[in-house]
Nucleic acid binder design. Structure first.
Lengths: 210, 210, 210, 210
DNA sequence: AATGAATGAGCCTTCATTCAT
DNA sequence: GATGAATGAAGGCTCATTCAT
């Protein structure tokens, strides 16, 4: 609450607030007034720091993704592709449901996937490229040496789209379906299911191709 | 121009127009003015016939789904579960990309999945229940006698979420990724992939359980 | 004050109000709120009838000019070019200072000349073409048979720019300069001066060329 | 970058920047941010040095006019009034189109004429008085001994308003009308026309009076 | 039964100005 | 003496909804 702080302070708060609000409401439904309010800033702050809502969004997205990248998928560097896939999926799904900053980032990321705004197209591919490459490597290892690009791509889509479950299905519905609250345990079970399901799927694709 | 016909006529045209516009733009981005224009009706027609936009949406959704149900999945009643699953997936994906009424309905349905409005919760479950039951049956047959409910549910989610690919990934991006335009052939290949992938996945789930 | 009238009623009032406000303040400084207020309409009325401020302006301009054209310069069809020029100038200057509709129109017209908005470019030339042609004819007759286009054009500019005096010099300043109030009499004197001045000028141009 | 120099330095740069921006955009469309940017100063500099935008404008106007006065009309002190009038007009019109400081000043001056802000009324008359006196003298000489004040005044208005042509008609339009680009040659021709036209005009006024 | 006119709340954006250092 | 951060009033536009017939 100290006034006239560093100057980067408010910008930072704005970015985090935007991250949260955009993640919760999506670009269209997020109001700059809400973001500013949440950041404890004036309505014009967005214009002052980011020119307009669209630019704020692009900046927020980059901001979020940089934070998103690091904590994930860093483990099990030497493990088998099967174990790494399982870890990858679990991390992905945990991120979606995390309450804090990482959760917002993940949701923001998926929001753009589901409701593309066209405002991050320039950065999109290069920012997610490293992530995708990791997954591609895993898939390629499981399929075997003959993996063609299209098969790898299709498998990637299959896996990622399964993981979206938690974002696109309202949690209440999921809980209703499963009659159990959406805690870490349920997420673990879902992640395990997707891992099992996908491992078999990838292998089948490999066999078909081989 | 033409004097108002039957009276229910306008209402019908509004529903069809709403179906199309909501399917294309989603609830939030669809404008009542556009819907009315498309229906050749007055701006106030929506409020006159349906009270407000939200009610129109709920009504439209029911309207669309009734039309959606019948034409789909009617074939291969006596075939093997594997063949029926493949057919189910192909039909689902074809529907998403169909141009006409069925396409609108399918996209409308998926729209609600991806961007839940909370406006159709009352009808949601009972309307899609028949569809889900068909898929459940297929999955249950493939898993075998010991299929527990949660496994069936998880497999359902895995399959349906894979099929969403076409809705959630912008077509341009998909074409960019695959370097090939989104014609019937590509859809067939995607559907085949999902079928292969999922069949193996379901079986794996069955084995784990068994 | 009858509500829900013809529908063209409000549009008409809006147009007249816009005419007045734009004429007084110019495009940039005129506020749609003021226009609507003056027209006794809601703020959104402009958007409803004219889409936006820019379109309203273009429409207003046409509206004003159509009214502007008819009453002016209709007299003295058979008189000498000298008499017709004198009449032309007097009419022009009277119009600029008229209080009512015609005055607004004239000022609006000159406003666009002095502060071009670029919003009426499409209609500009063709709308004022008839006016200009009348003046060109007069000038050409005075110059004589050898009148080249550029000379006519320059004379036109000389005359029109002199007439702008009343628009561009604040009336208070003019009164201060002349120590007399800006009534019909002063306007007559100014018009006579411009006529005398310009008649000699045109003839001089004719002689130089001849 | 460079540490603040003398202190009056920034103020000076602000005035020059303001001169340029106001001359190009006019008071209303000129943004203080642009002025500060152009002056390499902070946004608050304007308020710091000049209290507010209006005061900056008044100050700028004085600043510009002092620079404006000296370079103009200094030649031909002993020539005939006809030659001096021709020179006066040419200088005036050249100034309007000059690129550098003098051009800005001239345009700034005319801007105030065309779009009076009411912010320089106090200084206006005394600042332009010397200029006007020169022109009055020329006119009076041409008219002859009987020149009454009002005639001189009217002739002044006629001349000055003709010269405004270049400011009030957008250059593109002028080029379109004349089918020729606005170079020194065209300006010379215009100035010559105005001189010819006005000389004859003044004489006619003189005769009428005489 | 149906329509076109009219409304108003809400949103983003601009920009001169003030605050705190 | 000078600056960057931050503000707030105001304007234009969108769009679902209501009014009056």
């Amino acid at each position: 609450m100290t006034k006239r702080e560093d100057g980067k302070e408010t910008r930072w708060r704005l970015l985090n607030a935007a991250c949260e609000v955009f993640a919760k409401k999506g670009y269209r439904d997020a109001k700059v007034a809400d973001i500013c309010k949440q950041a404890g800033a004036n309505v014009s702050a967005v214009n002052y720091y980011f020119k307009n809502k669209a630019s704020l969004y692009a900046e927020t997205w980059r901001h979020a993704f940089q934070q998103f990248e690091e904590p994930a998928f860093s483990k099990l560097a030497g493990a088998s592709p099967q174990e790494r896939l399982r870890e990858y999926i679990l991390t992905l799904m945990k991120n979606f449901t995390t309450k804090g900053r990482l959760g917002h980032s993940s949701r923001l990321y998926l929001m753009e996937l589901v409701n593309p705004t066209g405002l991050v197209q320039n950065d999109w591919r290069e920012l997610i490229a490293p992530q995708r490459r990791k997954l591609h490597d895993i898939i390629r290892e499981i399929i075997g040496r003959k993996a063609d690009y299209q098969s790898v791509l299709f498998c990637e889509l299959s896996i990622v789209n399964q993981c979206r479950t938690l974002l696109t299905i309202k949690h209440k519905d999921l809980e209703y379906l499963l009659d159990q609250s959406l805690g870490p345990e349920l997420i673990k079970r879902l992640a395990d299911h997707i891992a099992d399901f996908s491992l078999a799927g990838i292998k089948a694709v490999g066999k078909r191709r081989g």
